[in-house]
Amino acid sequence: MDYILKTHDLHKSYRKFNALNGLTMSVPKGSIYGLVGMNGAGKTTLIRIAAGLQYPTSGDLELFGTSCFDDKIVDARKRIGTIVETPSLHPEMTAEENLKMQFISKGLPNYDEIPKLLEFVGLKDTGTKKAKKFSLGMRQRLSIAMTLCGDPDMLILDEPINGLDPQGIIEVRELILKLNREKDVTILISSHILDELSRLATHYCFIDKGVAVKEISAAELEKSCNKSLYVEVKGTGNMSVILDRLGYEYKLMTDRAADIFGDVDITPLVMELHKNGMDISKINEKEESLESFFLSVVGGGHND
């Protein structure tokens, strides 16, 4: 598998505080890679190192196969677009002028793409309004537009939906999915909004105290997030006898209710329970959420 970004035992220390403690992770090419971790886990520090704003204390980071200590890393960075925490805009300039500055900085020859980018992020009608008068959501949208200048191969987005309204969140999500599917752009995204991340990411990295405690694909995560069928019955029969006979793995909540794990064939189950004097009063599918999985990984135990 090709990896766009890799870290090897990455350490970053600030005087007495260790932000990264041997972080090792790999972002596959073409993935939407979600960075998940609590505040202070090291997500933004990692992104700053990837963007070239800071250097590791030890260890290495590779971008497109180039080490961050190699002079050629600047060529690799020309292929990425980055948002780090808060938007970096010229407050005295309009949205169009800010994009023009980015075009100039990147050496892009003409500005024809600017109106399209502004329309894409919903800022085409800002006119002469200066960026200092923008709302947080507008500044965030402009930042996203700036990362898209020059058709990057990879986007590194640190909390990109901060400050966006629900419509904006949907638009950014669709944009990310579109870029990934149609242009094969690899995306590294960190977000506290796990529900939103779960709709996007193809891979996850759970970071805690500067260490990657788990890397997992979305498919593997789905298997790991224990799905179960909650069944509640009324009647006189013994539920556990039936479930044992059918060979299901289960957990009794009460003598009339159970969580049944794995793939459950509902029709035979219902018929067997009915044959033995029990009728279903309640049945629903349950799934461990990304939040609970995250807590189980970083909040007290490692989920191997």
Partner: peptide
């Protein structure tokens, strides 16, 4: 102050 310096570094300027 505006943090626009990171726009230059992150896109590959030395």
């Amino acid at each position: 102050v505006d943090n626009t310096i990171r726009n230059k570094i992150s896109i590959g300027h030395k």
